[in-house]
């Protein structure tokens, strides 16, 4: 059963969450895969795997490799496509006791818009997150997340076709994230997820070639936590809309660091791979922390570490 505890409730750009812990896109499939391993009553929300207009098979193998305190992935947005998502995946997702967000990706702006339009009449979606930061596909993500003008155009177009809360998942692979955050805000975004994976590589010493078939992949896990935290701090100081922190979170302490830096909620991704019990433990740890500090709401801590 859902533990009702108003101290952890947050509203992220119109998405109401029972607690600030969200499963990151691409790390919780379409929800059902984790049934039995993760209690969805213990978390605030989940962001389903990126969906594109047509199904995608993803990149060649190998697609994942371990590294120090993290991993690289180059899955390549493998997904069932928006039609199959609506038909086969959404019915089960609607039964989820936490908030469900859909994540949308595309190679062209029109593709994003078509997917959003197809989803618009579907019930059971609390909000949308636009993936403009996938580092692993040659078309379909990052080019929208690098140029503030291109990003603003995409976000404005998306804003025109959806009434749902609209989150933008920004890339850390840019010289300065602030102009992108401001562009998304001005174009009508309701919240910003900061950030996606960092581009990285590993070499195979036997073959003298990069390990991943895609050559590079996205680095995630505790290895990137300080980088993501610094980006959240920067973005939260530059925009008025809520920021969702994402990068290497595995403990309530990690989540609190992001919240103190200005995040209203956090996403957990790679942590779930390592232990599907982590998201629930982070939420429980936040509750305990508030009780120890005699705080009535997690909102008292949002940005409290900013100087």
């Amino acid at each position: 059963m859902r533990k009702s505890n108003s101290a952890l409730q947050v509203n992220v750009g119109g998405v109401k969450l029972a607690n600030p812990v969200i499963l990151a896109s691409g790390t919780c499939g379409y929800g059902t895969e984790l049934e039995g391993w993760l209690d969805f009553n213990t978390i605030g929300g989940l962001v389903a795997k990126s969906i594109t207009l047509s199904p995608r098979t993803g990149n060649a193998m190998p697609r994942v490799v371990e590294c120090a305190s993290g991993m690289l992935n180059a899955i390549g947005l493998a997904n069932v496509g928006v039609e199959a998502f609506c038909r086969e995946k959404l019915p089960a997702l609607r039964k989820c006791p936490c908030a469900v967000l859909a994540n949308v990706a595309g190679s062209r702006a029109e593709e994003y818009i078509h997917v959003i339009q197809r989803l618009e009449k579907q019930p059971g979606i609390a909000g949308l997150e636009l993936n403009v930061s996938c580092p692993n596909v040659h078309a379909g993500g990052i080019e929208f997340g690098r140029d503030p003008k291109v990003l603003a155009k995409l976000v404005s177009a998306a804003r025109r076709v959806t009434r749902r809360p609209l989150w933008i998942k920004l890339s850390p692979n840019v010289t300065d994230i602030v102009p992108l955050a401001k562009a998304a805000e001005a174009a009508g975004a309701d919240a910003l997820t900061v950030a996606n994976t960092l581009v990285g590589m590993r070499m195979d010493l036997a073959r003298h070639r990069p390990v991943l078939a895609n050559l590079t992949g996205g680095l995630s896990g505790p290895a990137i936590k300080p980088v993501a935290l610094a980006l959240v701090y920067k973005v939260a100081g530059a925009v008025k809309i809520p920021v969702v922190g994402c990068g290497g979170i595995e403990t309530a302490g990690d989540a609190l660091e992001f919240i103190l830096a200005g995040a209203t909620a956090v996403q957990i991704g790679t942590g779930t791979f390592r232990d599907p019990g982590i998201p629930g433990r982070v939420a429980a740890g936040l509750r305990t922390y508030l009780a120890h500090r005699r705080l009535h709401s997690i909102l008292d801590l949002v940005g409290a570490g900013r100087v």
């Binding site: 790390t27 984790l34 391993w37 490799v65 992935n73 779930t272 791979f273």
Partner: peptide
């Protein structure tokens, strides 16, 4: 296969089965 999650969510351990990628873990 090398597995990141083992739970069927990451799509990192796929093999071609009847011409389509399927997850070894799930």
């Amino acid at each position: 296969e090398v597995m990141a999650c083992g739970l069927g969510v990451c799509n990192g351990c796929v093999v071609k089965i009847k011409g389509e990628y399927q997850r070894v873990c799930k």
